[in-house]
């Protein structure tokens, strides 16, 4: 897959934006790119980019995250360094944006810079197994709300349909019609599909980003 200088991930909350942003950053770094990832989530104080701080650091990826992320302070403020991504054109910038329209407001302040440079992908991440984006019409409704809040129109779709640990390659293949339909109705191309590594292995003929997901110690014993 080709890369634009800026890649902005947005979508319904719980669609998988953060996992994709982190894995895509690691993917770019592997290819030798200088990468900076910004956590712009002002909505959800849990499960954020900063959880992957160690892996990102080891891969030489710079992380910009709100000062109070993961600190038990629920303060929706963004650091000034966030501008680094839009202004420093020597880095590949990745923005992980908070869920729904409420999260996308954070992008609004950067929208003019992003449009002026015009070297970006604004990615709509979708999981058709999420209850509020389980129909194409519902997904489009959320898509439009986000665009309105962000002041930016989506340029492509990423299919991240999954049901967590129970996802199989067969199940993933059943989602292709959904995302194809979404693509046709919106006129947006499917940039890629994303799936956990073992699921991704079985997918041939598709552009897939295989992902490594974090294991939590409150996962139940197998």
């Amino acid at each position: 897959m080709d890369s634009k200088r800026l890649t902005l991930f947005a979508g319904h909350y719980g669609s998988g934006k953060t996992n994709i942003a982190v894995n895509y950053a690691l993917h770019l770094a592997e290819k030798g790119k200088k990468v900076c990832i910004a956590d712009l989530d002002i909505v959800n104080p849990y499960f954020r980019t900063k959880d992957s701080e160690r892996e990102l650091k080891e891969a030489g990826i710079e992380l910009v995250s709100p000062k109070y992320a993961n600190s038990n302070v629920d303060l929706p403020a963004l650091p000034a360094e966030s501008y680094r991504l839009v202004q420093d054109k020597s880095v590949y910038g990745i923005m992980d944006i908070g869920g729904d329209d409420r999260g996308a407001y954070a992008l609004g302040r950067f929208a003019d810079f992003i449009k002026a440079e015009d070297d970006y992908r604004f990615v709509f991440v979708v999981n058709c197994f999420r209850p509020l984006t389980s129909t194409v019409d519902d997904a489009i409704e959320i898509m439009r709300e986000i665009e309105k809040a962000a002041g930016l129109e989506f340029t492509c779709i990423v299919n991240n349909s999954n049901i967590g640990k129970e996802t199989t390659t067969e199940l993933f293949l059943t989602t292709l019609d959904f995302v194809q339909d979404l693509s046709e109705k919106t006129g947006l191309p499917i940039w890629m599909h994303t799936a956990e590594r073992s699921v991704a292995e079985g997918l041939s003929g598709l552009t897939v980003l295989p992902m490594t997901l974090q294991k939590k110690y409150f996962d139940l014993p197998d």
Partner: peptide
């Protein structure tokens, strides 16, 4: 059908 939900959403839908 299986769907993927947050705990909070599951309460609301239920």
């Amino acid at each position: 059908e299986r769907i993927l939900m947050k705990g909070n959403e599951a309460i609301a839908e239920a």
